[in-house]
Design a protein around this nucleic acid. Sequence first.
DNA 1: CTGTTAGCGCGTTCAA
DNA 2: TTGAACGCGCTAACAG
Lengths: 348, 348
Amino acid sequence: MTAPGPAPKRRRVTIKDVAAAANVSPMTVSNVINGRHQFVGEATRKAVEKEIARLNYRVQESARGLRTSYRRSVGIAIVDETQTFLSDHFNAHVVAGLSNVLSRHNHTLLVQGIPPQQFSKSLVIQNFAVDGFCVIMSGPPARRAEIVDTLVRLDQPVVLIQETTAPRAPDICIVRQDDAGGGRVLADHFAARRLARYLVIKPETEWPAIEARVDGFCEAIRRLVPEASIDIVRTATEDFDSVQRSVAAYLDSHALPDAIFGANDRLAIGAMLLLQAKDIAIPGRVRIAGFNGFESRRYARPLITTVMSPAYAIGERAAEALLERFAGDSFRETDVVLPVHLDPGETT
Amino acid sequence: MTAPGPAPKRRRVTIKDVAAAANVSPMTVSNVINGRHQFVGEATRKAVEKEIARLNYRVQESARGLRTSYRRSVGIAIVDETQTFLSDHFNAHVVAGLSNVLSRHNHTLLVQGIPPQQFSKSLVIQNFAVDGFCVIMSGPPARRAEIVDTLVRLDQPVVLIQETTAPRAPDICIVRQDDAGGGRVLADHFAARRLARYLVIKPETEWPAIEARVDGFCEAIRRLVPEASIDIVRTATEDFDSVQRSVAAYLDSHALPDAIFGANDRLAIGAMLLLQAKDIAIPGRVRIAGFNGFESRRYARPLITTVMSPAYAIGERAAEALLERFAGDSFRETDVVLPVHLDPGETT
DNA sequence: CTGTTAGCGCGTTCAA
DNA sequence: TTGAACGCGCTAACAG
């Protein structure tokens, strides 16, 4: 019979326990764990590994982190108004890319979604728990500048996703896609069809990446089709209701355009569904193209022409940049631009 | 001119530095940080807080974690064949719900996607860095059982998402949605329309949640429409090509069913797009319903009837369960089932 | 190749 | 209400 009373508080297995069990010093166990095989004999190594497995030993990251002042971890802060900050496929792909590369290099990823106003008070920022940050910002330029200020004050490596204006700050790296180039590719695609009247749909709130693709598009159209007209419609939010209200209002006072460029697929598809509901043939009467090319695009018919975003690769590159930075003492590149490519659908 | 040589390695500011600057002991700073206001005078508290802000002090989580043996963090392991483990909206919503509740309680979330074979060798599992786990499993029952074994051996609190078979293990809690009930609600919906010939589409690989909704559906149909026939088609993967091949093969040798139930929206929409391409009117000739109700469903027309998944709430509940578990010494509930509800669309 | 010593930054315990 | 001493588990630096 065991004595009554509260269950004994199990102590976790430590490096010392393993050392005792294997009849070696803790240091040797540490050497085995960290793959310093040069310092450990084959036989002792086997013995230690056996004890590690038998005792179910796991490295205590806090102790290791305290000692080495390196936590092998990255935090990703996703600045987003909405609580479902990962429903955006762009964010989801970036996180997946980051996470996978980090895992492969035995680093962990801390994920936190943060409303813009609370950025500086958020946990990942306030406490010291990671070795570097990856940040997906949003909101108007002033808000984004505040965020960058907060980040600079942390004095840790930071990768900014999809920023265009390079902040003049040390230890910051930008990883983004070639949005302007994507806009130009689409302009080429439309211009080859000799279309003259264009409508661009973009969100009210100013996103640097979206500005870039719209600017790239407009400049190229003006260059390629000098006689073209380009109207721009802004939508309050990106949901279908909002898009459709804005486009419907536009159509009330303007003739049907020849082509519509939605600054992302959701905007483009929102417009397409509206036109289809009005029995306007696509691409017969109006051509439509979007931007991003994530999976949900395939749900709408006809398949929309789009520019494919390398979001997953952006996450991978961000992770690689941070890992390199940790290994050295500065980012090797500070502005990484990934190519995009046109994926023609059935709407142009 | 500064002397040449490597930049001096900046030491991070510690609790001691703050204490010195504020002319108090480190203990007092610690009391301020941890909100033990009973032990600190109003004036000293202000002074300390001022120095914390001025010096940009941040708590070193590894030191605190080492001392308290509590890291204030949860790991989510998403077992998935694909590298883009967050493109599934279900996963994305669960992660967001988890993350937000944890943040609100000053806890962090480590995210890792893991291919089924590598589960036990993954970083979050191998190393000791979190206080508990949330796991979204996948794969056949045998593989899932292995994963549960691995988890049990960790001797840490675990929340399993969307499992149906309660593992007889301590310190495990299941959080899931009422899939069987969702299947029944859809059956009611169809049965009220006096439909007799049903086709169910489900993936080849056995997912407990999907089995539950299909079983719930079939049982209810058999009860409500005794003369009904139910055929089942399995698809190798969930992408449109695969779904459409399977359904097309079925239609080659069978008459058109009255109604189709896709075990999730993607399967249902894949089938719908195939029928539409064959000029079969929906819902005129065939009624269709899916399951989940995430955003991309809105891209397909007509809007599909579906059962809404409370995925975000599942993440929230998982976080709450873990936080409660950390505060006490066992899970309060070990099988949490969240309700689902029908969202009628235009396809039934 | 293996062992010893010391200390990373914090919070607990106890004394003042 | 504040301060001093100690140790959490690990690894860098060095000695053997």
